[in-house]
Design a protein around this nucleic acid. Structure first.
Lengths: 209, 209
DNA sequence: TTTTTAGGTGTACAGATGTTCATATAAGTG
DNA sequence: CACTTATATGAACATCTGTACACCTAAAAA
């Protein structure tokens, strides 16, 4: 049933793709109607509904303008296959509710073997404070955003508004943060310390020479 | 003047590209503002105007929704080709004319930003001999196969049937191979030494925790 | 210091846009 | 013929969206 599109429905799909390709953004319903020389948007609108039901087209929430996603085009992303885009964050900032977009400095495609389906970002390391963990200034850490850490995990923690890399150990009533550098003393924090917050755990490292 | 974008302006461009890639259609001004945690659309709107003046962004006629065209995107970077497959080699073996396929232990997709169009493979590091270069056992080195090295390049060389990582320096009549570890002595070889062969240069490092 | 620049907030408004409804036409079907 | 399906029209409506204006803040420049 899915692929049983009428000629007109196929033409509409093609028109959306073509418009998007030529203009860089998808058309509106009225622009589509105009392309077909129709004076009303309602006809196209109905066709679009059918296309959605048949699974040939996806749209954003109702009411969103130009929010077309031709499923065909999605298969293009499938070509990049195992690759997933991950944002590069220059700096972990204090008040991150989700992830401060202001600090985004780019993106990189990573193998999904590495990043899985999790919520991943790349953190640019500043300074040489982690040199004992064989982590250098300028390296990128692959960070999975999570609150659930297991003992021994390397985590990114926000301590006094500053992001640091530590090993995580949960003790009876507190948390021990063990620096990678054995000559440095561990830090102890209370689980509910407002100055302490776990951003995520480190899953990998990328370096460029 | 064109490329003189403030950090924020670059971030806005990145955000548009990312939104478009993830959703299939460009964002609205307000959606952008929301991404940045801003409560008003006017600030973003102003930035968008600047981006247009600087030529980094094109838009449809005034009033058209979501009509963004990031100039970068137009430069035909085939999104589906942003990822490239690179073989993982467990071991550099002696008689490699090309690359011993038998030693292949897998493959990984890497961002073409990183690997370019060159002939790239990934070499699994064995042992702790390079720990002073902040390279660990189990790390993957991104290696570009080439014979042309410049002074200071980190290279993979085959010495006495064994692969090592060294810094490359060409001297008058010989080549100096400087270990990453400063406490180790450099090795000198003749350019035509049959026991010596350059496999390629190290362009990056991948580590998994 | 004053001035400029880059950005941000809040409000407001006009036009763009998706959506719905009632209605119509033509083609195919039983 | 009546009945369904696919499509088109025109009007009406609720939001969405881009844009403008006034005003504010912080940092950099003069």
């Amino acid at each position: 049933m899915k692929n049983d599109l009428t000629p007109k429905q196929q033409q509409v799909l093609q028109a959306i793709k073509r418009f998007h390709r030529e203009n860089g953004y998808p058309p509106t319903v009225r622009e589509l109607a105009e392309l077909f020389g129709q004076s009303s948007a309602a006809g196209i609108h109905k066709i679009l509904q059918v296309l959605q039901e048949k699974g040939a087209l996806r749209r954003g929430e109702s009411g969103k303008s130009r929010s077309f996603m031709v499923m065909d085009d999605l298969l293009g992303e499938d070509k990049s296959h195992r690759a997933r885009s991950c944002p590069i964050i220059g700096n972990v900032v204090a008040g991150m509710p989700q992830l401060a977009v202001e600090e985004r400095e780019g993106e990189l495609y990573l193998d999904s073997d590495w990043v899985g389906q999790e919520d991943i970002f790349l953190l640019r390391v500043r300074g040489h404070s982690m040199i004992d963990a064989d982590i250098r200034d300028g390296d990128l850490l692959v960070v999975q955003m999570t609150q659930t850490c297991r003992n021994g995990d390397i985590i990114i923690a926000l301590l006094e508004e500053e992001a640091t890399v530590k090993r995580f150990y949960k003790e009876v009533e507190r948390i021990r943060l063990q620096p990678e550098n054995p000559s440095m003393q561990p830090i102890y924090v209370n689980k509910d310390d407002p100055n302490f917050r776990i951003i995520g755990k480190v899953k990998g490292l990328l370096r460029r020479y």
